[in-house]
Simulated assay, not measured.
Amino acid sequence: MTDKYLAYGRLIRGGKILFIRRRPGSFLGGHWELPGGTVEPGEATAETVVREFAEETGLAVRVTGERGAHSWDDVEGRPMRIHATVFALAEEEPGDVVLDPDEHDAFAWYTKEESAGLDLAEHFRDALED
């Protein structure tokens, strides 16, 4: 079995958390998530979340802490174990969200309570807890 490592970030602006939605036709299309992605070989997870956040949202961020880590078996049944770390983030400077249309088709800022109805993976939901 192989291991895959992911890093995601929770960014709060004005009391609301940034969520992005996977575009239809993509893996888990239509599902909401926190921005982030795959850790590249030799890359620290904290570096990954900063890089992925910029690629997916156009925002420059820095890591301020870790929100949690979770592991699970691949949802498509491949012989792979997924390991995800969610980080707390702060903006270097507030800016406009600019999505990569190849990956995501919408973004929204929600409070933890407002996000209760979103289709989120458990590791994202756990990261919303204070």
Rank of each mutant, 00 (worst) to 15 (best):
K4R: 14
L6T: 03
L6Q: 02
L6P: 01
Y8K: 13
R10F: 06
R10I: 13
I12H: 06
I12F: 00
R13I: 12
K16L: 12
I17F: 07
I20Y: 07
R21I: 00
R21E: 04
R22G: 06
R23N: 03
F27P: 04
F27W: 14
L28K: 15
G29K: 15
G30D: 10
G30A: 07
W32R: 11
W32K: 12
W32Y: 13
L34H: 10
L34I: 11
G36N: 12
T38L: 15
E40G: 00
E40K: 07
E40D: 11
E40V: 01
P41F: 14
E43D: 14
A46C: 04
V49P: 10
V49M: 09
V49L: 13
V50A: 10
R51F: 07
E52I: 02
E52C: 04
E52V: 00
E55W: 12
E55P: 04
T57C: 14
T57G: 09
T57P: 12
G58I: 14
G58L: 13
L59C: 13
A60F: 09
V61R: 03
R62L: 09
V63L: 11
V63F: 11
V63W: 08
V63Q: 09
T64D: 00
T64F: 06
G65V: 13
E66I: 08
R67P: 06
A69P: 00
H70I: 00
S71N: 04
S71W: 08
W72G: 00
W72S: 03
D73H: 13
D74W: 02
V75T: 04
V75I: 09
E76R: 01
P79Y: 02
P79S: 08
M80W: 07
I82Y: 09
A84G: 06
T85H: 04
F87W: 09
A88W: 05
L89N: 05
L89S: 05
L89D: 02
A90T: 13
D96G: 05
V98M: 07
V98F: 07
L99C: 09
L99D: 08
D102F: 03
D102Q: 10
D102M: 02
E103P: 00
D105Y: 02
D105C: 04
W109N: 01
Y110I: 02
T111N: 00
K112S: 07
L120P: 07
A121P: 04
H123E: 05
F124I: 11
F124G: 03
R125Q: 11
L128E: 05
